[in-house]
Amino acid sequence: MKKIFLYILAGSLCFSACKKDDDTSPYVEPEDIATQNTYDDQAIKKFMDENYLDAQGNIKAFSSTDTADDTEKKLSELSPITLPSGTIYIMRSGAQPSSAEGKTIESTDIIKIMGRAYSYLAVNSDGNTSFQSKAAFLNTIDGTGVPVIDPMFYYTKKSILDAATTPDAAKKASYYQIPGFREALQKFKAFDNLSNEAPYNLQGVIIVPSRAAFARNPHYPYLSLSYRNKSFVFNFQIYGREARPSGDVQLPEQQ
């Protein structure tokens, strides 16, 4: 009889646990986009308080058990600058090119970027807002180890826009480009064409809220994913830049 009772109790606990999992509410898109914007800002603040930069400039989460990172500064303590779009950038001290070496990044440039980028969804649960649904967007450090040259999310060349047929939105640069990233990246200087083999020393961080990314607009499905309401965190170094050939610069009507 005692064994039967234990089996029933175990079954009840299992059912309760399963039921609790089933009751977990999925993300529900706020009707008012201003609410999502607020969630983004709150999640970004939390992210900057919970992460720091290591010796090579990689974003790392503070450990709750290891005291080795107790003296590290939060991202929020590294003089972050907020742009009008809500995009935030952090220039890492000691990791920028010298004044003689640094090259101005123009809006139409071909860039050579090393680093990682992730998309996140800012979710409010029981009054607590945080980034969830982390998904890789760019990773040259853990992947090929080779910088990416001329990514479409910075600038989409004219030939791609000319070849686009459907949807109509694909004929516009805004379908591919992340405006907040473009805006912030031009605050940095590029290195003078470092070799692909050069060890990385990441220059900083750019955090783009969804309103400065694709918001709820049609967009290119990078990696076959949707970036509706998604914010982005870029952790990067610009190995080089070069002027784009005039024949591949977007026409005004393509912007």
Rank of each mutant, 00 (worst) to 15 (best):
K3T: 13
I4P: 08
L9Q: 02
A10F: 01
G11R: 12
L13S: 01
C14N: 03
D22Y: 07
D23M: 05
D23P: 02
V28R: 00
V28W: 01
A34S: 10
D41E: 12
D41T: 08
I44L: 11
Y52A: 03
A55G: 00
I59G: 03
A61I: 02
F62V: 11
K74Y: 12
L75K: 01
S76G: 09
L78M: 15
I81Q: 15
T87Y: 14
R92T: 09
A95R: 04
S99P: 02
S99I: 02
K103D: 03
T108K: 14
K112W: 14
R116D: 12
R116Y: 07
A117S: 09
Y120F: 15
L121F: 02
A122F: 01
N124W: 00
S130W: 00
L138V: 02
D142R: 05
V146T: 15
V148W: 03
T156Y: 05
T156L: 05
K157H: 09
T165V: 11
D168S: 13
Y175I: 09
P179Q: 12
E183N: 09
A190Y: 03
A190Q: 08
F191Q: 07
L194P: 13
S195T: 12
S195I: 07
S195K: 04
L202Q: 14
I206K: 03
V208D: 01
P209W: 13
S210F: 02
A213T: 06
P218M: 13
H219N: 04
Y220A: 06
Y220E: 15
Y227Q: 03
R228V: 06
V233S: 08
N235E: 12
Y239P: 13
R241Q: 09
A243S: 15
V249S: 04
L251A: 04
E253R: 07
